[in-house]
Amino acid sequence: MNLILIATIAALVIPMYEAAQDNDIWQKMLAFSSIATKASIVILIVSVLRDDWMIGVVGVIILSVGNAALMLLAQILKRLNEL
């Protein structure tokens, strides 16, 4: 199980590197969406690993709310490019 967690963290680092080196804002947004999903999945894995219901609830809420934040930000950035 520890190995699995290390592997997921390695997968989390790839989009972070991408967000740091790319200069296009939409590529950064893609990396952000990828990281948001992956982080909440890692929270879920940890909650199952520890058999902790509370962390699991938080993981599910972050999973559904983080995506809403992304959509809001994408709409605002789109308006920004129009002007």
Binding site: W26, M29, L44, G56, V60, S64, N67, A74, Q75
Partner: peptide
């Protein structure tokens, strides 16, 4: 922990498809 995980499964399936459409729409028109 099935209720939590099923909820995560459903929200993942719905939100990620919607998010894909929204991001594609915003990035292409911008």
């Amino acid at each position: 922990e099935w209720p939590l995980l099923i909820l995560a499964l459903i929200s993942l399936a719905i939100w990620n498809t919607v998010l894909g459409y929204v991001l594609a729409y915003c990035s292409s028109s911008g």
